[in-house]
């Protein structure tokens, strides 16, 4: 069986699940941000695979992937700024100690 759309979708699903596990289970905020980047990349693989195999003429999937990259760049910049701002006041990047907004 030659490589087709399903293989790319399963690769994307595996990457997304690994990223989801890391984002939920890890305590270091920077590692959580890294896992979110893995999840966004997995989504991009699925989009580009759909674009290649389902609508190869329109390329809409690749255009969507570019927008996902823009949002990922903005998210990384703001996320890291938030982490560093919290680190300044709390001296930690452990998310289990981030309880400023708990009542």
């Amino acid at each position: 069986m030659s490589v087709g759309l399903e293989h790319y979708l399963i690769l994307s699903a595996v990457l997304f699940s690994i990223g989801l596990y890391g984002a939920l289970a890890k305590r270091n905020a920077v590692v959580i941000l890294m896992c979110i980047e893995i999840m966004l990349n997995a989504v991009n693989i699925a989009l580009v695979a759909f674009s290649r195999y389902v609508v190869p003429v329109l390329l809409t999937g690749q255009i969507f992937a570019i927008f996902v990259m823009v949002v990922a760049a903005a998210e990384a910049a703001v996320g890291i700024a938030i982490i560093i701002a919290i680190y300044r006041s709390r001296e930690s990047v452990d998310v289990e100690k981030f309880d400023l907004m708990k009542w």
Partner: peptide, 21 residues
């Protein structure tokens, strides 16, 4: 950006442990 964030937060020695979840 991520590597700079790791260096600025100086928590490399603590590693990346798993939480309660």
């Amino acid at each position: 950006l991520i590597i700079v964030a790791i260096m600025l937060t100086r928590e490399v020695w603590r590693g990346s442990p798993s939480g309660r979840l």
